[in-house]
């Protein structure tokens, strides 16, 4: 296993990152529903702690770990990274299993299959905990196995702003994951033949775009090492620019055509708006893609004169 990890681990992590991002998005959306439902006074925090951990904390932490491992910095100690995050991940998984089990045994959760969130809840949380333990154990074991050598993993020089950028990226990803999860979950709860379904399309598009705009950011910075070609640099600016521009125009138009659009068709996607009586959905749907676009434009402000010869300083 160690030889496999030495040679293919980074490749596997880079691909797993995107797959996992898509897979966990409905969980983050689901976890947010728990949070919003308890937002008034957090009086059910204890009851909801396992879903918070299983649906939000674990997936987000896992994404961060995979990102740090898949795109390590020049001075990153990969061995320690594996050990620390593997141990934390396994610990979180074990904690989740113990927590859910104790809730069930004490009767705080009235059944091992309460069936409230899904048909098998809270057993699903135990499964997530077990998966986290397995994955954490796997990461933990890699540097300890004989023949472990991660020196061939590609690294990239981190700028001074890496950690603030990572924090910003996590915050942005939380919103983008929520929106993507809402979009996927919406397959189950959209009013497919309602009068407002077509008018919701620009909103659906912006929900997707918040995630899609992460692709050029990560591709440029992490895959191309921050040195795109002239054509690549132009494409990274123009394509997102067009997508955001068109999306914004359509979003604003549909909201002007039907000011009550989200009252009619958006309540399942944006429950917090209706809890707080604030129509923030169009703001969030506009703001986050625009933020991502602004970030892309700033990072690619200067276009290389010839392929790869001149790049903006990191």
């Amino acid at each position: 296993m160690s030889t496999f990890w030495n040679n293919n681990g980074q490749w596997a992590l880079r691909h797993a990152l995107w797959i996992l991002y898509v897979l966990v998005s409905p969980l983050v959306f689901l976890g947010s529903y728990h949070f919003i439902g308890d937002l008034l006074d957090f009086s059910h925090f204890g009851f909801l702690l396992p879903p918070y951990i299983g649906y939000v904390v674990l997936p987000i932490y896992l994404l961060v770990v995979l990102y740090l491992l898949a795109f390590p910095g020049e001075r990153t100690n990969l061995r320690n990274l594996h050990l620390i995050h593997g141990a934390v991940l396994a610990g979180l998984g074990a904690f989740l299993i113990v927590l859910v089990s104790s809730y069930i045994l004490s009767g705080f959760y009235w059944s091992p299959v309460m069936g409230t969130v899904n048909d098998i809840f809270p057993i699903d949380l135990i499964v997530y905990g077990a998966l986290a333990m397995l994955l954490g154990g796997f990461l933990l074991a890699q540097p300890l196995l004989p023949g472990s050598d991660l020196s061939s993993w590609k690294r990239k020089q981190r700028g001074r702003g890496f950690w603030p950028l990572l924090a910003g990226g996590i915050f942005y990803s939380l919103i983008a994951l929520y929106l993507l999860g809402a979009l996927f979950s919406g397959v189950d709860f959209a009013n497919w033949f309602s009068e407002a379904f077509l008018l919701m399309f620009p909103s659906y598009f912006m929900m997707l775009l918040a995630t899609l705009l992460l692709v050029p950011i990560i591709y440029r910075d992490e895959v191309l090492g921050g040195r795109p070609t002239r054509k690549g640099s132009l494409a990274i600016k123009i394509v997102p620019g067009i997508l955001v521009g068109v999306g914004l125009v359509l979003l604003i138009t549909t909201n002007l055509l039907e000011p009550n659009l989200y009252v009619m068709a958006g309540k399942p996607y944006f429950p917090i708006d209706f809890e707080g009586s604030l129509n923030v959905a169009p703001v969030v749907l506009s703001l986050f893609p625009v933020l991502a676009l602004a970030f892309i434009l700033v990072r690619n402000w200067r276009t290389p004169s010839k392929d790869g010869e001149e790049t903006q300083k990191e």
């Binding site: 529903y33 309602s194 309540k267």
Partner: peptide
């Protein structure tokens, strides 16, 4: 009420 559609379902469901 005002919250009855504020869940993971469509109004028709």
């Amino acid at each position: 009420g005002n919250h009855d559609m504020q869940g993971m379902w469509s109004s028709s469901w």
